[in-house]
Design a protein around this nucleic acid. Structure first.
Length: 223
DNA sequence: AGCCATGCACCG
DNA sequence: CGGTGCATGGCT
């Protein structure tokens, strides 16, 4: 989180994962970005050396373009299969419409790698493992319906959400969450029912409609 | 109709 | 047997 919890309520970050394409300017919470990208994504640091595979990249671009417009994909037949590059800049992005996360990198081709530089870059990449605590849930029909709230998996609530004051009857608190674009969402977190369960009620439907979520989409919280 | 609460029942 | 999806009911 950029700023820690203050006052009575706790804070968490919320994000949604779907599909799309777009551009974004503001700076992004790196931990939330990483949680959305998943554990298999490991970004190299600026200043390190990378190997760029043009064909793999253009295939990926082609695949992601197909659902949008039939855009022209430039083809450079004389490009080598791999390019040694210096990585100048890495910026994190999230599509403003869909919250799909992606990264933008500035690469400069270099003629050769220094052996030490390559080793340093490799070590730096392997040490990139912050792995923040988070939970992710695929939304059910009742999670997204206008009739009810969000049913929070018990373990998820206990691990990620600020602890409830169980002397209250029923135990409840206000959660303040911030999404990838630093928009603030507040949810009422309550523990009730028979059997007892964690629920998000007030504020949840605004989130569902605001993010245009449907059953099968997923929502992700980090602490 | 939207929103919050409760209880049942299914499923691991 | 615990956890949670869903149906249902009440209130605004």
């Amino acid at each position: 989180m950029k700023s820690p919890a203050t006052g009575a309520g706790g804070t968490a970050s919320a994000a949604t994962a779907t599909n799309g394409e777009g551009v974004e300017k503001k700076s992004i919470n790196p931990e939330l970005w990483q949680a959305c990208a998943g554990p298999l994504v490991n970004l190299p640091a600026a200043g390190t050396h990378v190997v760029y595979f043009p064909q793999g990249h253009s295939e990926q671009v082609a695949a992601s373009m197909k659902k949008d417009v039939d855009a022209q994909i430039p083809n450079y037949p004389n490009l080598p299969s791999k390019l040694l590059c210096l990585l100048h800049n890495v910026t994190l992005h999230a599509d403003p419409e869909t919250d799909e996360v992606y990264a933008q990198m500035t690469l400069q081709p270099v003629s050769s790698f220094d052996k030490d530089a390559l080793l340093r870059s490799d070590l730096a990449l392997k040490s990139n493992k912050p792995q923040t605590e988070f939970f992710c849930k695929t939304l059910t029909a009742s999670d997204t319906s206008t009739h009810g709230g969000f049913s929070v998996p018990r373990r998820a609530a206990e691990k990620i959400f600020p602890p409830l004051d169980f002397s209250m009857q029923p135990p409840a608190q206000e959660l303040v969450a911030r999404d990838l674009h630093d928009n603030v969402w507040t949810f009422r977190h309550i523990y009730r029912g028979q059997p007892k369960r964690h629920l998000l009620t007030t504020g949840w439907s605004l989130f569902i409609s605001g993010k245009r979520l449907f059953a099968g989409d997923s929502v992700l919280f980090i602490r």
